[in-house]
Simulated assay, not measured.
Amino acid sequence: MLDALTVVTAVTALLLAAWCGWAAYRDQPTKDWHFIGMAVVSLLAAVQLVIGVVQLARGEEPEQGTAIFVAYLLGAAACVPAAGFMSLAERSRWGSVTAAAGGVVLAVLEVRLYDIWGG
């Protein structure tokens, strides 16, 4: 798997978490700019999903098993969009907290994906 893409996705997810956490600290809900940030992070996770599936189709194998690798790829791709939809339901500071938590969870999933692939 592409290590650079994993690092970039994890770092942007943490930046999104810090940004949404700052909004929560200031008692603000998620704004349109936050959703644009979530879209960028989600796009990176979707690109990683496609690259991971292509590498599996070419016959490359993760060290810790294909099924768990695919499960983590799908979870990483769905994590931030799910948090974004939940933050839409809660239009208060807690929506920003939810979006920040989604960014942190994605960063942790990226570290785990790196470990599963054999990094």
Rank of each mutant, 00 (worst) to 15 (best):
E90S: 11
L43T: 14
P81N: 04
G37F: 01
L15C: 10
L88R: 07
L88C: 07
Q28M: 09
T9Q: 10
K31A: 11
V97R: 15
Q55R: 12
I36S: 08
W94L: 12
D115P: 00
V80Q: 01
A78Q: 05
T66G: 01
A67P: 00
V111K: 14
A10W: 07
Q64R: 12
A45I: 08
T30R: 01
Q55A: 09
A82Y: 03
M1S: 11
T30P: 02
K31Y: 06
P62V: 02
L106S: 06
W33D: 13
Y114K: 15
I116E: 08
V111T: 13
G118C: 13
V41N: 02
A71Y: 07
L14S: 09
L106I: 14
Q48S: 14
A83T: 03
L44Y: 06
L43M: 10
Y25L: 12
G52E: 03
V41M: 03
V54D: 09
Q28Y: 01
P62N: 10
Q64G: 00
S87L: 02
A71T: 06
C20Q: 08
R26Q: 12
L15M: 13
V108T: 13
T98F: 01
T98Y: 02
L56H: 01
V97Y: 12
V41P: 01
T98Q: 09
G102F: 01
L14T: 10
V104H: 07
L109C: 11
G59N: 04
A76I: 09
V53G: 04
L2R: 12
S42N: 00
Y72S: 00
P29C: 04
T12G: 05
G21L: 09
D27F: 04
L56P: 00
A17I: 05
A99R: 03
V8K: 15
M38Q: 07
G59F: 00
I68D: 10
M38Y: 00
L15H: 09
G65H: 04
L49V: 03
L44F: 14
P62I: 01
W33I: 08
A10M: 15
L74W: 09
T98I: 15
A10Y: 07
G75I: 00
Q48V: 01
L16C: 06
L44M: 13
A71P: 00
V97T: 11
G102Y: 02
T6Q: 15
M86W: 08
A24W: 02
V11Y: 06
V7C: 11
A78I: 08
V7H: 13
L44K: 05
R91L: 05
G84R: 02
L109Y: 11
W19S: 12
I51C: 09
L16M: 14
E60V: 06
A10F: 11
R93H: 06
E63R: 14
V70P: 02
